[in-house]
Amino acid sequence: MPEPLSVRQSLIVRTSPERAFSVFTERIGDWWRLADMHIGEQPPITAIVEPRVGGRWFERAADGTECPWGHVRVWEPPHRLVLSWEISADWRPDPTATSEVEVRFAAEDGATRIDFEHRGIESLTLRDQLAGGWPGLLQAFAKTTTDEE
């Protein structure tokens, strides 16, 4: 029963798989909500996915400081991308975390169908729970909830 331990989403993007894949990876610094969702001490100015298996994906602050998010596990442009998610539930680097994100891009009726899965979410932990609570998850959740209203 892997199903309950994943988050899945599907969407149609009106562009080609090639362009969808390249925007997802090369332009992640432009679409990722960096202001809300970052793990470094300093707010990042961009995010980067290195285009190869074993490459890193990470955020970079204005002073050049990099904060790792994980690694590229599968790099099959323009069809499939798997990234490890080495981030705790309170948005801190966690190299022991074992969840991963898979994105599939398929041509469909002149557009691209994206099938997204974040699996292994039972391994998301709170890095700082012993050091003083679990503010990140709750704050992030409250923020996204508020933003929606």
Binding site: L11, T15, V23, W32, F116, I121, T145
Partner: peptide, 20 residues
């Protein structure tokens, strides 16, 4: 936990789609 992540990805993927 799933609801939180689901919402996070829903918003992030929407931003990706808008840019793409």
């Amino acid at each position: 936990v799933r609801a939180y992540l689901d919402q996070f990805w829903d918003q992030s993927l929407a931003a990706f789609r808008d840019l793409a």
